[in-house]
Amino acid sequence: MNTQYRVPDAGSCGPVPGLAVFPLSGRQGVRATGEVVLTTRAIWEGVLEQAVREDKDVYYLELSDVTFVDVAGAGALAAAAGQLGEGRRFVVRRPPAALRRTLDLLWPGHAGIEVSMS
């Protein structure tokens, strides 16, 4: 999966956020870069839907190059994790602080989401 999406320039409104997603080498999952916001949510949700369809126990989301995930993006992650079968989980590696806080606040201890800072 190599998906990149950028909304056309909004003129004087400033740059529009983008999200690029690349497959991880050596393990099941993706590396994302950019932001998960309204204009990029379709990409994020597509990645999560694909991950749910995969037949692996662990699906890695490398987010060290993601600068922000809004609450709807966090909700999409929690909803997707809820669709994983027994014993399956997302390992979210190095997420932005906003995502960690949102998960801790709204979905503490979600069985389908493991947050790793290493």
Rank of each mutant, 00 (worst) to 15 (best):
Y5T: 12
V52L: 11
A42F: 10
P15Y: 13
T3Y: 13
V16C: 14
G34A: 10
L38H: 13
G46Q: 05
E86N: 03
E49V: 11
P108R: 00
V47Q: 05
K56N: 12
T40S: 11
T67L: 12
Q83W: 03
A81Q: 02
R6F: 14
A32I: 01
G112Y: 01
G73L: 03
P96D: 00
K56D: 14
V115D: 06
E45F: 09
V47T: 09
V92F: 00
E86Y: 03
E35S: 13
A74L: 04
S64W: 06
E49G: 15
R31V: 11
G75R: 07
G34F: 09
A72E: 11
A80S: 15
R31K: 11
T40H: 08
E35A: 12
W107T: 00
R41C: 10
P23G: 10
L48R: 02
C13L: 14
V115N: 00
W44L: 07
A72R: 09
E114M: 04
Q4F: 14
V58F: 08
S64N: 13
E35Y: 07
A78D: 04
L84K: 03
V66R: 02
A72H: 07
L38K: 09
R88S: 02
V66P: 01
V115A: 01
D57S: 13
Q4R: 14
S118R: 12
A80L: 08
A111K: 04
A74T: 10
G73Y: 06
A51Y: 08
D65A: 14
P95Y: 00
G14D: 06
Q50F: 09
D104I: 03
F90P: 00
V36S: 10
G18N: 11
G14A: 11
L63P: 08
D57A: 14
Q83S: 04
L48G: 09
P8R: 11
G29A: 09
Q28D: 15
L77S: 02
A98N: 06
D55K: 14
V21T: 09
M117C: 07
R94M: 04
R41M: 12
M117H: 13
P96S: 00
P23L: 05
E35D: 12
A74F: 03
T67E: 15
D57T: 13
E49S: 15
V47H: 03
P108C: 02
V115W: 01
A81S: 04
R31D: 08
L24E: 06
V36M: 07
S64Q: 12
T39Y: 12
L77F: 02
W44S: 11
G73Q: 04
A32L: 14
T39N: 14
L105T: 05
